[in-house]
Design a protein around this nucleic acid. Structure first.
Lengths: 116, 116
DNA sequence: GCTATAGTTAGCCTTATGGCTAACCATTCA
DNA sequence: TGAATGGTTAGCCATAAGGCTAACTATAGC
């Protein structure tokens, strides 16, 4: 389950809509296709992309293929994003500390100036 | 700042690496290019994609262009993902409640059977 | 067994993506 | 002012993405 594929899968509005639909519960290919003004084979491609990203799994029983969401893949992405934000926030903290240090030094200098 | 573009921007490993680098702080185009075995124009394309997604902004002073990360865009994605997860979890809750209901009904039926 | 239903495969088309080179600005700095 | 530095533009190429139609397979239901 590569980040490339998950992000890639989610970069298309049709596929995001499918994911959103599957959040509500399993669905057959036909059900998934209904809301879209799109030929079935086109939609199937999207489903396959979602599958190869790991976001969706499907199983065929009889002539119906039922798709369901794989929450772990969404979680992978969330984890990545959260990690980036954390790094960013740590950096902000460091910057803040640096600014505080500068302020203190400036105060010290001001005192020295006064007492001169 | 469209979800399409943000996800699309993050679907490429090079661009994710740039984002990760920028989490540590601002950087010039040249600095960003260093770690990659890639011609500058190719890297520039990535930077432009990141910019058009809203993930990165840049400003040119003199002959140096300095890039920095725009955390809000990352947040947009996190929000979307979190929203999906919430829907999913609500659904799980509903299912759990449904199962509980079934269990209770079954118990009630069992009692009735016994007392018959 | 025939017909309708649900997907699937194959193949085509257009546009976007990700890479390159070569040539071209535009600042710095000696 | 002339050379080095840092980006930028233009244009090429190969492959992938996203859509289509037409034809095909495999079950379900009458």
């Amino acid at each position: 389950m590569r980040l490339d594929h998950v992000f890639g899968a989610l970069s298309d509005a049709t596929r995001r809509a499918i994911v959103m639909r599957l959040c509500e519960g399993e669905a057959s290919v036909g059900e998934l296709a209904k809301p879209f003004d799109m030929a079935l084979p086109s939609l199937m491609k999207h489903i396959r992309i979602l599958e190869s990203s790991g976001l969706v799994t499907s199983e065929k029983t009889g002539r119906v293929r039922t798709c369901s969401l794989q929450l772990e893949a969404l979680a992978t992405v969330e984890v990545w994003l959260a990690a980036q934000r954390e790094i960013w926030e740590q950096r902000l903290d460091r910057m803040e500390m640096y600014v505080e240090k500068l302020k203190k030094e400036e105060k010290a200098r001001a005192r020295r100036r006064k007492s001169r």
